[in-house]
Simulated scan of single mutants.
Amino acid sequence: MTVFSFIIVIYLMNLIIGLLGDEIKKNNDDALYYVQKAEIIAEIELFYLLPHQRRWRTWFPEIIVSVEKARKHIREAINNGEWKMNDWPEMKQKILKLLSMDDTIVNQAV
């Protein structure tokens, strides 16, 4: 009975690890990574640094995501029909302007 219980516990642990590994692969998204990175940087800036340390650009760059990656992600979202201008139109216009992307790309996809 003891050996059986020990083997079952090991088997169930391996099963759980395998299922968690699959979930991690599904949710391993660059956007999520950058959001978490931005949250951690904001927390460090707010709670752990003195005001003069917060201005160090070598530690805290203005841009976290490369522009090319952002453009690629937005183009994929437009092509997949996930980029809807009706949701948050002002914010999306500002993003397109900052990334120097044409509105024609968005209008062609709509």
Rank of each mutant, 00 (worst) to 15 (best):
K97T: 09
Q93F: 12
M13I: 14
I10R: 10
K94H: 07
E39Y: 04
A31Y: 12
D22H: 08
K37V: 11
L19H: 01
A70G: 00
T2Q: 15
L98F: 07
F47A: 07
E82R: 06
R71L: 01
H73F: 05
K37W: 05
N86D: 15
D22E: 15
K72F: 10
I78G: 01
V67M: 11
N14T: 04
E23A: 13
I7G: 03
E76S: 13
Q108L: 12
M101Y: 02
V110N: 15
L99T: 00
F4K: 15
I95Q: 10
L19N: 00
L96E: 09
K26N: 04
I24W: 05
I8N: 09
T104E: 12
S5L: 13
V106T: 02
L46R: 14
L99I: 00
E90R: 10
D30T: 07
I74L: 13
V110T: 13
Q93D: 05
L46H: 11
D103F: 13
M101E: 05
Q53T: 03
E39I: 14
K26D: 05
N80Y: 07
W88C: 06
R71E: 04
E45L: 10
A70R: 04
R75T: 05
E62H: 03
S66Y: 03
P61H: 03
D29I: 09
I44E: 12
D22F: 08
K72M: 11
E68C: 02
L96C: 07
R55Q: 14
V35A: 13
I105K: 01
T2V: 02
K25N: 08
I10N: 07
V9T: 11
H73N: 15
R71K: 12
Y48F: 14
N107K: 15
N107D: 13
L96K: 02
L15G: 08
A109D: 02
R54G: 01
V65T: 11
M91S: 12
A70V: 00
K37C: 05
F47C: 03
Y48N: 07
P61K: 06
K94I: 10
V65Q: 15
I44L: 08
G21M: 02
D102Q: 03
Y48R: 05
N107S: 13
T104R: 02
G81T: 02
